[in-house]
Structure formats: structure tokens, C-alpha cells
Amino acid sequence: MAQDVLVVGELAGGAITSTTAELLNAAKSLAEGGAVAVTLLGSGASGAAAGAFAAGAGKAFTSDDAAYDDVRADQWAAAVDNAIGQQNPGVVLFAQSPVGRDVAPRIAFRRNTAAAMDCVSVAMDGGAFKATRPCYGGNAQAVYSFTTAPAVATVRAKSFDAAEPAAGASGETVDLGAAPASNIEIVGMEAAVSAGLKMEEAPIVIAGGRGLGDADSFREIEALADAFGADKATTGASRAAVDLGWYPPAKQVGLTGKVVTPDLYVAVAISGASQHMAGCSGSKMIVAINRDKEANIFKSAKYGIVGDWKAVVPALIEAVKAAK
């Protein structure tokens, strides 16, 4: 049964984000012939609409108001709700991002319906919208259907592929106008210091855990990343290591940190608690280095080395350098 699907888009540098493109592609199959619409909010939004049309949207609700550049949930919710009122979609998709976390529940409760957060899959199943999401720290997965519309879901990055951009695609643009007043004042932003590649984009992530023993040992993790190449590899950490203050929170991989999907994820001295695996299980290949051969991480790894990281990592640095 055809239904309209609304994607809440996000912008980076005047263009739609890769996750927005993924959601638009997912929306096309969910719509089953219905319309795919997108909201684009903030500086350059109307200019970014062409990219959204090429990625699968047929209609864009836009506002170029720079007030939307910093995300304030009350303003964003008002704009998205306005678009929902005009389009009457059966499904509303957000990215599982600061926007999705803050705005999706507001939309669900404002419309007296429901949201499924942090989904890894959304699909139509016999005419019913179903959302699949990890729960219990990644130990289990739950599949939900909705008894009310619109169904609201936030979807993890890279859960879907983006479509090849359709050349010459066009669509209808609807202006949402200026942002309403907000009662949220943004006082400041302290950017995380991040040298090199973004963890979510790096082809190789070398992550360290509590088993490293101290903060200084992360220098060895960094040296291993450097051996793979600063243009290919970056570092990450488990929540246990971050909570101990050994590595910055922005580097945390896991349920409450970042979700990474590199070609190669090397887990050093990480036991592989489910909440950690929730952040890296989408990696194409996991290599585990751990002293405990029973460690959970080996269950998800393709290759494992059972041994003391203090001996293995320096040897691996040399072997990787020699192979290049």
C-alpha cells in the first residue's frame, strides 16, 4: 500500500549528509509508490534540495533560516511537524544523530504516536512498517510494528546504501519560512580535539580497552594506527577506557559512543561487552588481540591473536611497516 514517507534531512557544508542520502533511498522502498519528501533546515537548505532530489526525494520542505544551523529541538520539531501536517506521511525517518535523539521523540509524542530509536533496519512487511533495533546493550534485537501513524524511527548511519545520484532529477520545493523563537540558548561549543581522520569515516580503526592498563598505553595504539597510515587509520576506545579517563569521550566506540563501520576494526585488550559490539559489529572485518581466549570479542572477530598486547602490538607495528 502506497504511503508517503518524510525524511528529516541534515546538512553539512551546504549539502545533504551521506546518512540523509541513505534514508532517502530507504524511504523510496518504504513508500511503495507513495511520495518521498524531505525537510532541509538551515543555511543553504534550498540549494541542497537538488542533492536531495538526486538521492530520491520528490519534494523538499526547506528553510534557509540560519537559526536552524545550531539544532534547537523546539525549533526543529516545529518545522518538522509543519511538514508532517502538509504531507501526512505514514512514516517519518530521522538519522540516529543529535537531531534524531532530540526531535524524533518530540514528534512522536506531539502526534500521540510512537518512535523506535536507533534502528538498524526499517522495512515494509506485508503492508506493515517494521523497525528492528538492538536492545539490552546489543545482546538482543527487537522488531516493532506500530498501531498509530505516523510511525517515527531514527536509523543508524550506514544501515542502508545511498542510491547512485540520479542526474537531472528535480522536485517540488515548499518554503517552511523562518524559525520560530526558541527557549534554548546555546552558550558555547567546545570542539573535541581530533587529529586526522574521523572515526566514522576511517577505513581502519584501532581501538584500545581497559586491558591496556593505563592512559599512556594508548600511545602504542596510536603507533599501530600510524603504521597502517595516517590517511587510512585512526584510533578509538572502549567505554571502560573512556570512563577511566584514558581517552577522550569523542573517541568512544559503542552503544553510548560512536558507531563505526570500517573495513578493518582492530580491538586491542577489549573484552567485547555487548554495548561495545553495538558500536563496531558493522565493521567488515574485526581482528581481536586479547590475552583471554574466552573473551567475547573473539566471537565476532574473523582473526584473533591470543596473547599479551604489550608483546603483540609492537610486533604488529613492525610487521605492518615491513609489509608496506
Partner: peptide, 12 residues
């Protein structure tokens, strides 16, 4: 509003 259709342990 949400109906839990299925709860399962994913196989690794």
C-alpha cells in the same frame, strides 16, 4: 503504540 513483534538474540 509500539507492538513488539519479535525479540531475538542475533547470531554472531
Amino acid at each position: 503504540r509500539l507492538k513488539l513483534e519479535r525479540l531475538f538474540i542475533p547470531q554472531s
